[in-house]
Structures are given as structure tokens and as C-alpha cells.
Amino acid sequence: MDAIPFEDRNTLIQCLTNPEWRRRLPDWEVDLPRLIAEPAWKNLVKRLRQESELFERMWKEHDVSGERIVLKRYLHPDVGLLRFEFSYLYLGRRSEISLATLTPADEETAAKLPSSF
């Protein structure tokens, strides 16, 4: 896979516009409504409504949820299923910037990661 341009380095953009990325997220159908509920960026919403029919349909249906995802699963092409617990750190009450931290959810996942990870 080629390097992802800076402006496209967003899980929601990749999940909705990149089928290869979506294949690596086995729970994308469950998680997507929660992800769609999160963006506070008008430009991101506008872009996704233009580029993703799925986003546009879900946006119009208001089929979204504000519930936070506690466990994320990724299907890596070389090592298989990885499970991570995650949390968000918001950089201020009015900031649109957040940092997601991922921690292996089990020993099996931790063992699949490089030791320098």
C-alpha cells in the first residue's frame, strides 16, 4: 500500500473510502455509526458526504451513536487479528484535536507486536 497523504490520515476517511483499509477492520459495520457520531469538523463531514455513499446514507438516516468504542479489532494481513483497548485524550474543551491511545487488549496481541512497539 502506498503512503497515505497527510490529509487522508483519518480512520473515518479510510474506512469509508478505502476498501483495503475497511477489510482490515472486522468490526467496521458495528463501529462505523460510533465513528460517524464523533467528527466535529464541518469540512470532514462535507468531504465524507461527497466521497462516500455509505456515509451520506448514514448521515441522512441519523443512524449514528455517541457511544464510545472500548475495544478495537484490526485484521492485519501478516499476523492476523489484533485486539486493542483504546482511549481518547482531548486537547482542551474547545479543541477539535484528539489523541487516541491503543494498548494491546490481550497477551496474544502483545506477542504479535514488534518488541520496540
Score class of each variant (00 low, 15 high):
Glu53Arg: 07
Met58Ser: 04
Glu61His: 04
Arg93Cys: 11
Ala105Thr: 07
Asp78Trp: 02
Ser116Asp: 06
Arg83Tyr: 07
Arg73Lys: 15
Leu32Phe: 02
Asp8Gln: 14
Gly92Ile: 12
Ile97Pro: 02
Phe117Met: 07
Pro33Gln: 07
Leu25Trp: 12
Lys42Met: 04
Ala37Glu: 10
Thr103Lys: 15
Tyr90Cys: 05
Ser98Ala: 11
Asp8Leu: 09
Glu7Val: 10
Lys112Arg: 06
Lys42His: 04
Ile13Met: 09
Trp21Met: 10
Thr17Asn: 12
Lys72Leu: 09
Tyr74Trp: 07
Asn43Gly: 06
Lys72Tyr: 08
Glu108Thr: 15
Lys60Asn: 08
Ser115Val: 13
Arg73Tyr: 03
Leu12Tyr: 06
Thr103Phe: 12
Pro77Thr: 09
Gln14Cys: 15
Arg24His: 11
Glu61Lys: 04
Glu51Pro: 06
Leu102Gln: 09
Glu56Asn: 14
Leu82Asn: 02
Glu85Ile: 03
Ile97Gly: 04
Asn18Asp: 15
Gly66Tyr: 10
Ala105Asn: 06
Asp27Ile: 10
Asp106Cys: 01
Glu20Thr: 09
Glu38Asn: 09
Asp8Ile: 07
Glu20Phe: 10
Phe6Ala: 15
Leu81Tyr: 11
Phe55Tyr: 08
Asp106Phe: 02
Thr109Phe: 01
Arg57Val: 04
Pro5Trp: 13
Gln50Ile: 08
Asp27Thr: 14
Trp21Ser: 09
Val64Tyr: 01
Ile69Gln: 01
Leu113Trp: 04
Phe86Gly: 10
Asn18Arg: 08
Asp78Arg: 03
Leu82Met: 06
Trp59His: 15
Glu96Met: 14
Ala111Thr: 11
Leu48Ser: 04
Trp28Lys: 02
Met58Arg: 03
Val45Glu: 02
Ala110Leu: 14
Ile36Cys: 03
Arg83Asp: 12
Glu85Thr: 13
Val45Ala: 05
Val79Pro: 02
Ser116Leu: 10
Asp2Pro: 15
Glu51Tyr: 07
Lys46Phe: 12
Val79Ala: 10
Ser87Tyr: 15
